[in-house]
């Protein structure tokens, strides 16, 4: 392990962390603008030109608010909850390949923090840990609405994890590897996995919506029934962390969907571009394409939120257990049979 390697990874981690925070920040702004557009309003337009400084104003407001810990709350866990939500949201970015390797001189720098051979399962594990922040925060608040929300979050998370795992298995049958780097490289040019796994992608996307607690699956923070859900008792930056974690989660799951099903940094005609732009600019164009895909998914998340009303709780469970899981299993069987036929048993 040479010192240049450590510095290189450290810089990469810092950049990715910074980018996810900035994107999460501006997702709040984008969300309000998209909502305004869909509802024929203007949205935030006071702070700076087009309201571009609104996230900063919101951040300052969050920091300045009074910090309240309810007297009956379990103090430590009350503080651990938002931190855990933030942590689990951020660590998912470690295994995502952001672009093809850059060559500076004779040093090749991969744009991925860690290429582990169980990358896909790592993502899945991080997703399944995500619920702890909500559960611990909701329980520690010692408020019945928060507790109800924590319990809803747990059961929703467990239910949709199963369908998500099953849709990943079908994807594994196609790719034959769990390393995200190899999955992306296998989708060179136009051979995106969504073309081979359309149903799998649909299932995975629905489950991502449920796992990130986004509408129409935002039952843990359903304000008409539960006041504010698990963050009812939170104020100041602790509340900010919860809200922020949701946007980081959205960014990470958009990145994962783009990586797994939409080719990551691959795009048609990339060979020509790579050959003509040099070893630094070429990969960075790929990264740019990857971010365009991510932004498209984030926009889709918002579009759905402001279009489709929230599910009822029994509808949520019905969809998860009786529709998505059987479909996912059928998808595995069909994929397996087709692969067996093509490869001649």
């Amino acid at each position: 392990m040479d010192i240049a390697f450590v510095i290189e990874k450290f810089v990469l981690v810092a950049i990715i962390f910074g980018i996810s925070l900035v994107i999460a920040m501006y997702s709040t702004y984008a969300e309000r603008k998209v909502a305004a557009f869909l509802q024929d309003r203007l949205g935030p337009d006071r702070a700076g030109p087009f309201g571009i400084l609104q996230p900063l104003a919101d951040g300052v407001k969050m920091f300045m608010k009074e910090e309240i810990v309810p007297s009956n709350a379990s103090k430590w866990l009350f503080m651990v909850g938002p931190g855990l939500a933030m942590l689990t949201a951020c660590i998912g970015t470690a295994v995502i390949p952001w672009g093809s390797p850059i060559a500076i001189g004779d040093r090749i720098i991969p744009l991925q923090v860690a290429d582990i051979n169980v990358g896909l399962l790592y993502i899945f594990g991080v997703v399944s840990l995500g619920v702890y922040g909500v559960m611990i925060g909701g329980w520690a608040s010692n408020n019945k609405y928060s507790l109800l929300s924590a319990i809803r979050a747990a059961s929703q998370n467990i239910s949709y994890e199963i369908a998500m795992g099953l849709s990943i298995i079908a994807l594994l049958l196609v790719t034959g590897t769990m390393s995200l780097k190899e999955i992306v490289d296998g989708q060179h040019g136009w051979r995106w996995n969504v073309l081979y796994q359309p149903l799998g992608f649909l299932l995975f996307m629905i489950c991502s919506f449920a796992e990130t607690n986004r509408a129409p699956f935002d039952l843990p923070e359903c304000e008409t029934e539960l006041i504010g859900g698990y963050h009812t008792e939170y104020s100041s930056m602790k509340l900010g962390f919860y809200l922020f974690a949701e946007y980081i989660n959205m960014f990470v799951s958009a990145a994962v969907m783009a990586t797994l099903y939409f080719g990551g940094y691959n795009y048609p005609g990339m060979d020509w571009v790579l050959a003509n732009t040099g070893p630094v600019i070429g990969p960075l164009i790929g990264t740019g394409v990857f971010f365009i895909k991510i932004f498209a998914f984030i926009f889709f998340f918002m579009w759905v939120r402001w279009t489709i009303p929230r599910f009822r709780y029994d509808q949520l469970m019905h969809l998860g257990w009786k529709v998505l899981i059987p479909l996912a299993i059928a998808n595995i069987v069909v994929t397996g049979v087709v692969i067996a036929v093509i490869e001649g048993f």
């Binding site: 169980v118 399962l121 619920v131 747990a154 467990i158």
Partner: peptide, 24 residues
């Protein structure tokens, strides 16, 4: 690595969530 990540998903991510769920 595989056992590690499966331990992570199954025990930490699923079984303990259910334990916590029941206790809450």
């Amino acid at each position: 690595q595989f056992l590690a990540v499966v331990n992570f998903i199954v025990y930490m991510g699923a079984i303990m969530v259910l334990f916590l769920f029941v206790l809450m």
